[in-house]
Amino acid sequence: MSTAAAPLALVHSTSVKPDEVRRRELAGFLRSRRERISPEQVGLPAGGRRRTPGLRREEVAQLAAVGVTWYTWLEQSRDIQVSPQVLDAIARALLLDTNERAHLFSLADTPDPAPVAMCPTITPAILAIMEQLEPLPVVAANSRCDVLAYNRTYRHLITDLDAVPTADRNFLWMAFTDPLWRKVLVDYEDATASMVAKFRSAMADHVAEPAWKALLKRLRLASPEFDEQWQRHEVGLTSNGEKRFLNPQVGLLHFEFTTLWLGPRQSTRLITYTPADEETAERVERLHAYALTRV
Rank of each mutant, 00 (worst) to 15 (best):
L262T: 01
E225Q: 12
C119R: 09
R218S: 09
S15A: 12
F199L: 12
L180V: 15
V138P: 02
T280M: 14
H156T: 04
A204D: 15
T123R: 01
R57S: 11
A191M: 06
E131F: 00
A208Y: 01
A89S: 15
M203I: 03
D19F: 02
D79T: 11
V86P: 08
S77L: 08
T280W: 09
V147H: 01
R265V: 00
A291T: 07
T259R: 01
V116L: 15
T69D: 14
R244N: 14
H156D: 11
E285W: 00
Q81G: 14
Q62F: 15
F255W: 06
M174Y: 04
T14P: 04
H233D: 15
T274V: 14
F105T: 03
V42T: 07
S83M: 10
V11I: 14
T272G: 13
G48N: 09
T153D: 02
T52R: 01
A6L: 13
A102C: 06
R169E: 13
D146M: 03
E35V: 00
S267A: 06
V86K: 01
R101D: 10
R220I: 03
T272Y: 01
A289H: 11
E131W: 02
A108S: 13
N151S: 02
R34M: 11
K183M: 06
M118A: 15
V82L: 14
M130I: 03
V284P: 05
M195H: 10
R50E: 11
E209L: 05
V184H: 08
N142W: 01
E40C: 05
T72H: 11
L216F: 01
R269S: 03
F226L: 02
A222C: 08
E58T: 04
L94V: 12
E209M: 03
M130C: 14
L94P: 04
P7C: 07
P120F: 00
P275I: 12
F199K: 01
V68G: 05
T72R: 08
S239I: 01
A108K: 08
A211P: 05
F29C: 07
P275S: 13
E20G: 02
K217W: 08
A89K: 14
L87S: 08
V116Q: 13
P111G: 05
R33L: 12
L287V: 05
R286S: 10
A4V: 10
I129T: 11
I126M: 07
S143I: 03
H254Q: 13
K213Y: 02
A93L: 06
T280P: 09
R101G: 09
Y154D: 06
V68H: 02
L260E: 00
D277R: 09
A175W: 03
E59I: 03
D205G: 15
L161A: 09
V250M: 07
V284K: 02
T192I: 09
E282Y: 02
R144K: 09
F245Q: 10
L292F: 00
D190T: 09
E282D: 13
